Amino acid sequence: MEEYGSTDVGENVMPETAYRKWTGLVQDGFFALGGFPSVLGCIDGTHIRIQAPTRDEPAFVNRKGYHSINVQAVCDHEERSPTSISDGFLLGDSGYPCRPFLETPYMTPQGNAQQRYNDSLCATRVTIERTFGRWKRRFHVLHSEIRMSPRREYQIVLACAVLHNISILLNEPLQDDNDNPDEQPTVDTYGGRHDGRGIRDHIANTFFSS
């Protein structure tokens, strides 16, 4: 993994110490959910229903036959949208390609390690599905139909994502006390082929073989 002296977020810069603390908290949070190491976010897409636009109308018809915006999002362990992803992995479903920065399930797992890998990934990745559900319940306009121009609809979706993050920050639930929290194992430096499948095999064999 590369070393970063600071992390740019728009015009802001996150100092390295704060960034390292943030990544540690996120990785530990995800590890507690499903036992998957070094996860910084879960990625997926969801459809936001819209009225039929007057221009390029066929381009907005999804495979289910209604008009929508296809929103792709990444969430952290607290169901917020993070501002930076590095020094870790995203988890996606089988619709995504397996990449060094994006780990996906085995289509036909071979052996116990690969099956446990899939189970852990699924238990962790469900966070993004819960995020979409809570996001749409919090802002009913996302769960019904947005009746504006596509440009305004994009702005509304983005604003709802920002407000969702703020609402979690201001109303963070109390965590249950745990005298023996799960400790995330240290991920050894990977020296094999640097592609998604090679890293996926390394994770499965290292953390899920026993």
Rank of each mutant, 00 (worst) to 15 (best):
G92I: 04
D28P: 02
F30P: 02
P58K: 07
C42F: 08
Y106S: 10
D28L: 08
R49M: 02
E153T: 14
R55W: 00
S94D: 14
R147G: 01
S94M: 06
L158S: 12
Q114M: 13
Q51V: 10
H143E: 11
C42A: 14
E153D: 06
Q155C: 11
H77F: 13
C75V: 07
H77W: 11
N118V: 11
R80M: 15
I156N: 04
Q72R: 05
D93P: 09
V141D: 01
G65V: 03
N70Q: 11
L91C: 07
H47G: 04
F132H: 05
P37N: 09
D28N: 13
R151M: 06
T108A: 12
R116H: 11
F60R: 04
Y106K: 11
W135R: 05
L142F: 01
S68E: 00
S120F: 07
C75F: 05
E145N: 02
C122Y: 12
G88V: 05
L121Q: 10
Y66A: 01
I85Q: 09
T104H: 07
E153L: 00
R55C: 04
K64M: 00
S94A: 15
K64E: 06
A123M: 13
R116I: 02
G29K: 06
G133A: 13
F36W: 05
H47Q: 07
Y117H: 13
N62Y: 03
R137W: 00
L90T: 05
I156V: 14
N62T: 03
